[in-house]
Amino acid sequence: MERLQKIMSQAGIASRRKSEEIITAGRVEVNGKVVTELGTKVNPNEDIIKVDGQKIEREKLVYVLLNKPKGYITTVDDPRNRRTVMDLIQDVSQAVHPVGRLDKDTEGLLLLTNDGDLTYALTHPSHGVDKTYIATVKGIPNQSKIEALEEGIKLKDGWTAPAEAKLVAELADEAIVSLTIHEGRKHQVKRMLKSVGHPVEDLKRVKFGSLDLTGLSVGGYRYLTNSEVKELKKVEDRVNSVEN
């Protein structure tokens, strides 16, 4: 017997916490009866569980690492029929979803999974998962600009948290900058660099937590190893220890 919200998460419905909201809203049936009580335990091998009238099945949890090319949007479906990252992993049978987002014109590391609890842990703004980007910017940032990025930048939605910034290379009239942040604001890296006078011309995410793009060509993907999943799960464990 397992908690109903855990089974829903493992079926790719939502994270456990979001599943709890779905349960209390009266959208879940177990063996034909609406269940609204949190903590309800079910047998996933025997009980018939439905969400919004649709029977759910527990999927095998999978974790896919994609080297996203430019020109693809980070969503499962697009009403305008634009290319999405799902077009790149069509032979993955499980109903995975992207963990966070990359802009259409940004390439690099993107994790996709059907593990709702891990997605919640990795994307929550207070959980501090490092993400490293390599940006080609206009102009050459001086040391004071690098230090400003590290200390935090005041944007329209408030100050950014301290970051790790490094001038990687100086070119004729542009530069390559490495920036590591642990927040997930919309267009954050682009906005930070623009605010110090160096708009982004090209952007790539090269690290996400303990993961990197070693051996993965643009547009390619692979499944995570057991050890990589175990390392990511440490973030989820930290979140559970704080919130429970």
Score class of each variant (00 low, 15 high):
residue 93 S to C: 02
residue 183 E to V: 10
residue 144 S to D: 15
residue 147 E to K: 12
residue 65 L to C: 06
residue 230 K to A: 15
residue 73 I to M: 01
residue 242 V to I: 14
residue 53 G to N: 05
residue 213 L to Y: 09
residue 78 D to V: 05
residue 73 I to F: 05
residue 74 T to L: 09
residue 46 E to K: 15
residue 70 K to P: 07
residue 93 S to I: 08
residue 20 E to V: 05
residue 18 K to I: 09
residue 185 R to L: 00
residue 210 S to G: 10
residue 31 N to C: 06
residue 66 L to E: 13
residue 216 L to P: 02
residue 6 K to C: 05
residue 218 V to Y: 01
residue 16 R to A: 02
residue 187 H to N: 15
residue 203 L to W: 05
residue 113 T to N: 10
residue 208 F to V: 11
residue 114 N to S: 06
residue 5 Q to T: 06
residue 173 D to V: 09
residue 43 N to G: 05
residue 39 G to P: 04
residue 110 L to K: 03
residue 179 L to F: 02
residue 81 N to Q: 10
residue 86 M to T: 06
residue 186 K to N: 15
residue 135 A to K: 10
residue 168 V to P: 03
residue 35 V to R: 11
residue 196 V to K: 00
residue 137 V to T: 09
residue 133 Y to R: 13
residue 21 E to M: 11
residue 59 E to F: 09
residue 168 V to Q: 08
residue 213 L to R: 07
residue 105 D to S: 12
residue 135 A to H: 09
residue 109 L to Y: 04
residue 223 Y to S: 04
residue 66 L to N: 12
residue 102 L to W: 06
residue 107 E to V: 09
residue 231 E to S: 14
residue 65 L to K: 13
residue 46 E to S: 14
residue 239 V to H: 00
residue 8 M to K: 04
residue 158 G to C: 10
residue 148 A to H: 10
residue 99 V to P: 09
residue 160 T to H: 01
residue 122 L to Y: 08
residue 170 E to T: 14
residue 103 D to K: 07
residue 159 W to L: 14
residue 89 I to K: 07
residue 73 I to T: 11
residue 200 V to K: 00
residue 146 I to K: 08
residue 192 M to V: 10
residue 78 D to H: 06
residue 167 L to T: 04
residue 29 E to V: 00
residue 198 H to L: 13
residue 74 T to I: 06
residue 213 L to I: 04
residue 119 T to D: 07
residue 154 K to F: 09
residue 98 P to E: 06
residue 77 D to T: 15
residue 237 D to A: 10
residue 176 I to F: 06
residue 140 I to R: 11
residue 210 S to I: 13
residue 97 H to N: 08
residue 198 H to N: 15
residue 87 D to R: 01
residue 116 G to C: 04
residue 166 K to D: 09
residue 35 V to K: 11
residue 45 N to D: 14
residue 155 L to D: 11
residue 235 V to Y: 00
residue 212 D to N: 15
residue 165 A to I: 05
residue 137 V to G: 02
residue 129 V to F: 03
residue 81 N to Y: 05
residue 19 S to T: 03
residue 186 K to P: 07
residue 59 E to N: 14
residue 52 D to T: 08
residue 182 H to R: 14
residue 199 P to K: 00
residue 138 K to M: 10
residue 132 T to C: 08
residue 108 G to V: 09
residue 142 N to S: 12
residue 94 Q to S: 06
residue 181 I to W: 02
residue 134 I to V: 15
residue 218 V to H: 00
residue 124 H to K: 14
residue 180 T to V: 11
residue 116 G to F: 01
residue 46 E to P: 04
residue 80 R to W: 12
residue 16 R to F: 04
residue 146 I to A: 02
residue 228 E to R: 03
residue 172 A to Y: 10
residue 143 Q to D: 15
